[in-house]
Design a protein around this nucleic acid. Structure first.
Ligand SMILES: [Zn+2]
Ligand SMILES: [Zn+2]
Ligand SMILES: [Zn+2]
Ligand SMILES: [Zn+2]
Lengths: 148, 148
DNA sequence: TTAAACCCTAGAGTTAGGTCCAAAGTCAAC
DNA sequence: GTTGACTTTGGACCTAACTCTAGGGTTTAA
């Protein structure tokens, strides 16, 4: 019982990207289907499917395809690298990630504060607290610190 | 005592972007210096400085320039909009942000787990747990669920 | 009064990450 | 045995967000 292989269209539908994108990832060494059919059709395994998942996840959180490539490709040079090297690479990404999460949380707080302060009513937004805050600088005053 | 104005080079140095980038932001309506000198030099106010800060912050957390433009530009159409509209816009971004933060935290966990499991030693990484995990799929096994 | 270090505009070029053909082969079903 | 939905390749094209170049004006300090 060999596992079910997916053709490119099926995989594309499954993970919600275009076939072109999958071929693009292949061209850039991120995802090579584990098999081809007689006719040359790409056949993707479950492992390939999960790999796409990883790629898309990493992409959504802001890794570039190059970084993802490096992450996935660490093993190619494994004989030249020490555990120390590999760990450093991952830890670097991790630091980066932590910083970005922190920044996002700050912006989140800002937006939340703004949103909470707005009445959300149906009348024209001429008095809207959100607009006032965002717009403070247009009146030549500084943007309130809580916005930054 | 009018406030100190910055020329483009000073501002660029201060916020660590190129002068071209500042001019680019201007061309796209994100940041218009509040004043020009006799000679046509851009003069940026403290408010302008803070606006750049906001732009860069928002950018770092993954807003596109278009989104930032919309955020900053809400007030232009304020007479056509209700508080409800404005609040909805912000809440939408907020949802988006929350989702992305969640995803980043998942990846963070993954990387942390990997990093913690690696010995970090100086010997060749042929046995490295990180590489084994990332590479599980290359041996046709699935990537461990904790990686996704 | 001239050299160095700034600034201006317009417009071309670049990179990442796709997206869209065109021409042709393949496979299932009717 | 042909229609229709799939697939292949190669290459042109696209958008976002810069980045660079050319050709010129300005400011300041020696
Ligand atoms: Zn209101
Ligand atoms: Zn409001
Ligand atoms: Zn080790
Ligand atoms: Zn290791």
């Amino acid at each position: 019982m060999s596992e079910k292989k997916l053709r490119i269209g099926e995989l594309a539908r499954l993970v919600q990207v275009s076939q072109d994108t999958l071929r693009f990832y292949e061209k850039h060494g991120l995802l090579t289907p584990s098999l081809r059919s007689q006719a040359g059709y790409r056949l993707y395994s479950q492992a390939d499917l999960e790999r796409v998942g990883f790629i898309l996840s990493a992409k959504r959180v802001g890794f570039t395809l190059n970084e993802i490539h490096d992450l996935l490709g660490l093993e190619v040079t494994k004989d030249d690298k020490s555990c120390e090297d590999v760990k450093r690479f991952v830890d670097e990404k991790l630091d980066n990630l932590n910083q970005r999460i922190g920044e996002m949380q700050r912006i989140q707080k800002t937006l939340k504060t703004l949103s909470d302060a707005c009445c959300g009513g149906a009348e024209p937004a001429t008095h809207c607290t959100i607009l006032e805050a965002l717009n403070a600088q247009a009146e030549s005053g500084p943007i309130p610190r809580r916005l930054l």
